[in-house]
Design a protein around this nucleic acid. Structure first.
Lengths: 211, 211
DNA sequence: AATATATGTTTCCTATAGGAAACTTTTGCT
DNA sequence: AGCAAAAGTTTCCTATAGGAAACATATATT
């Protein structure tokens, strides 16, 4: 594929593996009751209110929270719907607070990891961090015509694009091309083919973040 | 909480609701049985084998797969453990492959949705799109001292920060403050307290993307 | 084809989940 | 403190989930 930034695919892989690993912990010791209670309290709901919303009996909820019963799937569903919880949230351990889990990575203006292609010159930021949710990179767009792309660039996820300097034309598979000037941004689904060309004299510079 | 960008939480909400919506289908119509069966077959297991692994009776599994019962949470747990499934996988609909899923939203330089706080002036981008993975916003930092923040700004997810103009000091809970100039970026875990102040004469401008 | 074997379903019974109401504890008010 | 109202727990009963075994169906094996 023409100029599809290969590092994007790499990361995708990693991401998926992580998610899986994350929810794996829950195998047994998952304290469902605790979680439900925490979630209920976080919404400042009383047993009565919560039960009402979920269409359950006060008593039932109480028992669930105190781990006195193993609720039926139907009940869990009601709970989820009623309290506006989402399943992963319910079943995923409250994140052991990623002990010491505050990561940070600084990338200096000139120091980003270069990644040149025929049409773009990418500079990867935050390369010290693996398993991150987003991939940020700054790109110099030297393509001047859509013809320079063999075919649509296309990959998984969503992309946020911000024009740092110059002017670009954003071509996408399902929309008319749109011109973007400095300060404009676009957010789009990357499974849709997309390509960027510079309209300005100088190569345009854009910031891209993929997730 | 001081200046914690409320829209982040908002979005969180939305996200949850959305995901919920996603899994809401499950309120009732979620065909748990189908999913279990599919997962079992995908591992080429017979009812007997699967039941064995999960520590359940063959009959029980059969009933579950045929939606004749609403399994107890305990049973679901056993299933999950026994078959090596993970919960989200079980409860998340197999993604209808987002048919025709090519979305796009353009935000013009001056047109972003303003969101002023005491310390920052945020401008939200891509507000036409809901359920997106990232929340991009451009921010003018008018705080000049860390004291202007009551306490750490802290929320879920990860954040990418890119300095568009001016110079800022990035304070984080677990690291020494670091100065960032135009073109520098930072990527960090948002559960770690963080705050930004302008060092330059003019208010600094940064681009933030949260996921 | 007939029989054996394995896979999936249904039945029947016991254990337990869910709801209504009684009971207990906590919170707020004068 | 004493009372009232609200929040949470326990009890009791009915509905239903889970397991063992009987039954039915599909898949070899000779």
């Amino acid at each position: 594929m023409a100029d599809s930034p290969s590092f994007l695919n790499d990361q995708k892989q990693t991401l998926q593996i992580n998610k899986k690993a994350g929810s794996e912990a829950l195998v047994e010791p998952l304290k469902l009751g605790e979680r439900v209670k925490a979630l209920r309290l976080s919404q400042n709901l009383t047993l009565e209110e919560a039960a009402q919303r979920a269409g359950l009996a006060r008593s039932t909820l109480s028992k669930i929270e105190n781990e006195q019963v193993s609720p039926t799937f139907a009940v869990v569903s009601k709970l989820v719907a009623g309290l506006g919880i989402n399943i992963p949230q319910l079943f995923t351990q409250p994140e052991p607070e990623q002990t010491g889990g505050g990561r940070r990575d600084i990338t200096r203006a000139g120091q980003a990891e270069p990644h040149p292609t025929k049409t773009y010159d990418h500079e990867l930021h935050a390369t010290q961090l693996s398993q991150k949710k987003m991939i940020p990179f700054k790109t110099r767009v030297h393509a001047r015509s859509i013809d320079e792309f063999g075919q649509w660039v296309r990959h998984g996820g969503e992309e946020f694009l911000y024009v740092l300097s110059g002017e670009v034309m954003l071509y996408t598979e399902f929309y008319e091309p749109v011109a973007l000037s400095t300060g404009d941004s676009a957010y789009y689904d990357c499974t849709m083919g997309h390509a960027l060309v510079s309209l300005s004299e100088q190569d345009a510079e854009v910031l891209w973040v993929t997730a």
